[in-house]
Design a protein around this nucleic acid. Structure first.
Lengths: 345, 345
DNA sequence: GTGAAAGCGCTAACAG
DNA sequence: CTGTTAGCGCTTTCAC
């Protein structure tokens, strides 16, 4: 049996109240002499206040949860989630909070696991790239649970959200292709549940529109999460007759770009000679690709640290309305892009 | 104020005991009719048992902590720690335990943070690659805290430990170099605090010895954690006069190998033409290097899952003596090795 | 300045 | 089969 506050009280001949006030250095004063005596006993017996008992009283655990989507088999081993978690830990460590990981559950399970998230184990939650319409998030929020989402915008939900400027990023990179002379550009959209992905499509369409370029409806393709499907879809677009084949591929994120490049190369096409490919996120592997990928950098680590910070502010009551933070992005030009071989028609 | 068990009891006209027995489905039976009534009320009020109150009674949190060394700036973004954490989460998810992350503290802070680790917040701890002689681990163990170490052997400490067979791995890869005709081989040792690193040196020396080869004392070099220092040290060895220069470099782990290759290339030397380089761990980046790295694969994900499993068994009392698990390794031959240009002397 | 005592929300004897 | 009650280890009123 571990040593408890009561033992300390008895051993130092004071009341439990006094011991408590010594430990917490307040809220009521303790005579220096008494204080020292108590502290000595505490040190001697190696006493450590019990976390559960404390949370029970204080209703605070100094812990928050990070919830990852189930679609990702190994979040920590993933070029997107790793920097996100790193940023979260940056903020958590700075504010001496502990992080609990929730992973390996599907969002449907998650809906069923509202309980798990409302048993007081955590003071709040960070949801990483949840579906935009997640009933779970909505319900937790109604519950009074503090929630901030990363990489998904809040829409009508009044919960905190931190994301980067997807529309602008997508416009930037599309414009850069247009400036290089591309006219026939395809968009490979990702899974459409988070808000980020559709926003990137919006940016693409906007850039094309602004440039007065027609967007061929069958050049805007959902490729989903499955890289196999992505591979096939890409091959199909790139297999179109020359007159209809795009000279550049805007991919909703780097992983799609990776697969798209492989698909192009499997067709004997050269990147960027025959087709330019661009990504989004600037994940760590993109500079090792051959050719290194032109992409949009989003400050994932800073962004997620900001999300954690917002959550903690919410918990601490430093702010009371969750807000929506949008981080700026910038172009990273590498070698997967070049002017098209022949200016399109 | 959240709804509590007492509310449920009152609302369904039974005692708190009965509600508790309904929730936990035992240990004492409840009349089906009563049970159903209670369950309905629970559902209606959206009641959720409070985790702190439960841990206070049960002395179990169903949570364990993972402690990362401070030397690593961003553990999750690190090719070694990412698969380790993934393995841990595999096991944790399978056994419905929650994982808490402890990072960003130095080992000295850690020594001072015994308290944090003994406040009952976690049922046990996994230490990832701690220093072999960590006083913290020893003290926690004496404390009765369940601890398992990953990537460090226990030595005289009677705590659980899971590692791979470093000696054998190092022998394997050194032998493969010898078989290719290398005679003058240098060893770049890592930081020497964990047990893995010295063991790899042992394997190297053993292999050399078995082959009847002399090991030049100044070809066994500690290069530490700092990649700058590692770079310089490597340049120095490779800058030796041809008669004393090694034709192959055995690196204590892949990150050293990466730096060593850069150092060699910075000297205008070709890998493997002028010097063969081998690593250890088979981290994900090694196949993207140019040339792709010959290395020793250790099953990090499986290994750390086993460590988590052992910890949970210890906690659950399924086993009572922590043991030492050693995982097998195997050679991964890629292109950073070749026979030496001229057979040595 | 300090002590006694009442809970926080739950579980598990102990009684019927 | 169910209710009463005494804690788990802590914080914080009340009283003095």
């Amino acid at each position: 049996m571990a040593v408890t506050l009561k033992h300390i009280a008895k051993a130092s001949g004071v009341s439990t109240a006094t011991v408590s006030y010594v430990i917490n250095d307040g809220p009521r004063p303790v005579l220096p002499a008494t204080r020292e005596r108590v502290q000595r006993v505490i040190a001697e017996l190696g006493y450590q206040p019990n976390a559960a008992a404390r949370s029970l009283m204080r209703k605070r655990t100094h812990t928050f949860g990070v919830v990852f989507p189930h679609v990702v088999e190994a979040p920590m081993d993933n070029a997107y989630f790793a920097p996100v978690l790193t940023g979260i830990l940056d903020a958590a460590t700075a504010r001496r909070q502990i992080v609990m990981l929730f992973t390996g559950m599907s969002w449907e399970d998650a809906e069923r696991s509202v309980p798990l998230f409302s048993d007081g184990r955590c003071d709040g939650f960070l949801f990483v790239a949840p579906p935009a319409n997640s009933g779970l998030v909505a319900r937790l929020h109604k519950n009074g649970t503090k929630v901030v989402m990363i990489g998904t915008r809040a829409l009508e939900l009044p919960v905190g959200a931190v994301d980067s400027d997807n529309v602008r990023g997508s416009m930037l990179i599309t414009q850069s292709l247009i400036e290089q002379g591309h006219r026939k550009i395809a968009m490979l959209q990702g899974h459409l549940t988070s808000t980020s992905t559709p926003e990137r499509t919006v940016g693409f369409l906007k850039a094309m529109n602004d440039a007065g370029l027609q967007v061929d409806a069958d050049l805007v393709l959902p490729v989903g999460y499955d890289s196999k499907q992505c591979f096939e879809t890409t091959r199909k677009v790139l297999g179109l007759p020359e007159s209809r084949r795009p000279t550049a591929l805007v991919c909703a994120h780097d992983s799609i770009a990776l697969t798209a490049m492989e698909a192009a190369q499997s067709l004997g096409l050269e990147v960027p000679g025959d087709v330019s490919v661009v990504g989004f996120d600037n994940l760590s592997f993109t500079q090792q690709l051959s050719p290194p990928l032109t992409t949009v950098e989003q400050p994932l680590r800073k962004l997620s640290a900001a999300a954690a910070s917002m959550l903690l502010d919410l918990i601490d009551g430093l702010i009371d309305k969750p807000s929506e933070l949008l981080f700026d992005v910038h172009l990273v030009v590498r070698s997967s892009t070049s002017p098209p071989r022949r200016a399109a028609e």
